[in-house]
C-alpha cells in the first residue's frame, strides 16, 4: 500500500504540511493526508484533536496558516469555499445543516438548482421553472428513505432523518468527494445502521472522508483511518493496524471522557 503512496493519480485529495495556528495554539500541526479514490477514509481522534479544524481547512471554511491542498491534481489551497464546492468537493456539518423552514423536497431542490441552473442570478424568472427538478429530488429522497416526508418541514424531522436529508442534499450536487463531519453523532442504533448502509452505498461510486466518533462504525465502514491527536497525525492504516498502535491506545486511554464505544 505504502509503495503506491506517491502515485498522485490514485488520490482524490492530498494535503501536505497542513497547519493552522489560532493565536499561538497549533490546532492543526503539519498534517499530511491522502484520500484514495472510491474509498472511505475516516479521521478519528480524541476530543480537541483538531479533526473539525482539519475539516474546515480542507473545505476552505478556514484558511490554512501553512501547507497545501491538492484536489484532483489541482492546487486548491487558495480557493473560496463555494468555488471548491462547485468542483465537486462537498461537505456536511457536525450540527445538522438543513433548511429548517423549508420542506424536505425544497431542501434537495435548492441543491439541484445550483447544479442545474448554476450560478445564475435570475430574479426576473418565475420559480415555476424549478418544478422540473422535483422528479430528481423525489428520486434522491427515495434513495435515503425519506419518500414519506417530502412535504414535511425539515425542522420537524427527527434527528436521524435530518441527517439523511442532509446526505440527500449533498448527493444532489453529485459530488466526487464527500466530507462528512460526524454523520452518525447523536443517532439511535436503528438510524446508525441505516445511515452507515447509506454511506457504504454512496462510496461505491464516490470518495468519502469522514470524521466519526463511533469506533465500531469506523471499524466496519472505513478502508483507511487517520488518527489525530493534539493537531498532529498519530497513526495511519486500516482499523487493525491503528487499533493496536500503542500511541493510539495511550491517546485514547489518556482521554477517558471520549466516546469509546
Amino acid at each position: 500500500m505504502t509503495s503506491r503512496h506517491d502515485d498522485g493519480a490514485d488520490y482524490v485529495l492530498t494535503a501536505k504540511g497542513l497547519t493552522k495556528v489560532f493565536g499561538g495554539i497549533r490546532a492543526v500541526d503539519n498534517v499530511d493526508l491522502s484520500v484514495r479514490r472510491n474509498s472511505i477514509h475516516a479521521l478519528i481522534g480524541p476530543n480537541g484533536a483538531g479533526k473539525t479544524t482539519c475539516f474546515n481547512l480542507l473545505t476552505k471554511f478556514l484558511t490554512p496558516s501553512k501547507g497545501t491542498i491538492t484536489y484532483e491534481g489541482e492546487d486548491v489551497t487558495n480557493l473560496a469555499p463555494a468555488a471548491i464546492a462547485q468542483k465537486g468537493l462537498v461537505r456536511s456539518f457536525q450540527i445538522s445543516a438543513v433548511f429548517g423552514g423549508m420542506t424536505v423536497l425544497e431542501n434537495v431542490r435548492l441543491a439541484l438548482q445550483r447544479r442545474v441552473h448554476g450560478r445564475s442570478f435570475d430574479f426576473w424568472r418565475s420559480s415555476k421553472c424549478l418544478n422540473s427538478l422535483e422528479d430528481e429530488a423525489v428520486q434522491l429522497l427515495e434513495d435515503v428513505g425519506l419518500e414519506d416526508f417530502l412535504h414535511d418541514r425539515a425542522a420537524d424531522l427527527p434527528y436521524g432523518r435530518k441527517r439523511a436529508l442532509e446526505i440527500a442534499t449533498t448527493l444532489a450536487l453529485d459530488p466526487r468527494l464527500l466530507l462528512l463531519d460526524e454523520p452518525l453523532a447523536g443517532m439511535g442504533q436503528e438510524d446508525i445502521g441505516r445511515t452507515s448502509d447509506l454511506i457504504k452505498r454512496v462510496a461505491e461510486t464516490r470518495t468519502v472522508l469522514m470524521v466519526e466518533h463511533n469506533l465500531s462504525v469506523v471499524a466496519t465502514l472505513s478502508d483507511r483511518i487517520t488518527v489525530l491527536a493534539r493537531g498532529a497525525v498519530l497513526a495511519e492504516g486500516n482499523y487493525a493496524e491503528v487499533s493496536e498502535d500503542p500511541a493510539v491506545v495511550e491517546a485514547y486511554i489518556g482521554e477517558p471522557n471520549d466516546t469509546y464505544d
Binding site: A97, F99, G101, M102, Q113, S127
Partner: peptide
C-alpha cells in the same frame, strides 16, 4: 424567482448554502 429561493436558503442557513 430562483434567485428568491436562494435568498431564502441564505436566510435559513448561510454556511450550508456556501457548502452547496
Amino acid at each position: 424567482s430562483p434567485f428568491g429561493e436562494v435568498l431564502k436558503g441564505i436566510r435559513e442557513n448561510e454556511p450550508r448554502m456556501i457548502s452547496l
